[in-house]
Simulated assay, not measured.
Amino acid sequence: MRRLQSVDEFHDLAEEKPVVFMFTAGWCPDCRVIDPIMPEVENSFQEYEFISVDRDEFIDLCIEKDVYGIPSFLAFNNGQEAGRFVSKDRKTQEEIESFLANLPK
């Protein structure tokens, strides 16, 4: 999963293609728990581009998008927010895959 480089890139990607942003941080133990499963999740949902967003680097973006817990996921399709899985709770592979499977197409 590649990392977000700028706020402008966030807005461009959200407008251009189906994308899922994973908000994370290096110090977040719950984020580290899901890191090993994310390649499999990405492989199962190839219709989306997955982008890692460092919460500490993009705190203003987190505030703008009401993302206060990590790990969290925001999905965009056709320039619109398609869904969010935002909380401070640890997430399982099954929960992440269920969130992605239930996004509107």
Rank of each mutant, 00 (worst) to 15 (best):
R3T: 13
R3L: 08
L4A: 11
L4W: 05
S6F: 07
S6V: 04
S6P: 03
V7E: 14
D8H: 12
E9Y: 01
E9K: 10
F10T: 08
F10P: 01
F10E: 09
H11T: 02
D12Y: 02
L13Y: 05
A14G: 04
A14T: 08
E15T: 13
E15R: 15
E15W: 04
E16T: 09
E16F: 02
K17M: 11
K17D: 08
P18H: 02
P18L: 06
V19N: 04
V19I: 10
V19A: 01
V19D: 02
V19P: 02
V20P: 06
F21D: 04
M22D: 14
M22N: 14
F23Q: 07
F23E: 01
F23Y: 14
F23K: 01
T24S: 15
W27A: 06
W27C: 07
C28H: 07
P29S: 04
P29M: 04
D30K: 11
D30W: 12
C31E: 05
C31R: 01
R32P: 03
R32C: 11
V33D: 12
I34W: 05
D35T: 15
D35N: 14
P36A: 11
P36V: 09
I37C: 07
M38Y: 05
P39K: 13
P39L: 09
E40N: 11
E42C: 14
E42V: 13
S44D: 12
S44I: 00
S44K: 10
S44W: 00
F45L: 08
F45N: 07
F45Q: 12
E47K: 14
Y48V: 06
Y48R: 10
Y48L: 08
E49H: 12
F50G: 10
I51K: 06
S52W: 14
V53N: 09
V53C: 08
D54C: 13
R55V: 12
R55F: 15
D56N: 15
I59G: 00
D60G: 06
D60M: 11
D60H: 15
L61I: 03
L61V: 03
L61R: 02
L61T: 04
C62Y: 03
I63W: 07
I63P: 00
E64I: 01
E64V: 04
V67H: 06
Y68K: 10
G69T: 02
I70Y: 07
I70V: 05
S72Q: 06
L74Y: 08
L74N: 03
A75S: 11
N78S: 06
G79V: 07
G79C: 08
Q80E: 13
A82V: 08
A82F: 05
G83F: 03
G83Y: 05
F85S: 02
F85M: 08
F85D: 08
V86G: 00
S87P: 02
S87C: 10
D89W: 08
D89S: 14
R90G: 14
R90M: 11
R90K: 15
K91Q: 13
Q93D: 13
E94I: 12
E94L: 13
E95P: 07
E97C: 11
S98Y: 06
S98Q: 11
F99W: 04
F99R: 00
F99A: 05
L100R: 05
A101E: 12
N102R: 10
L103T: 02
P104Q: 01
P104E: 10
K105Q: 12
K105P: 03
K105N: 11
K105S: 06
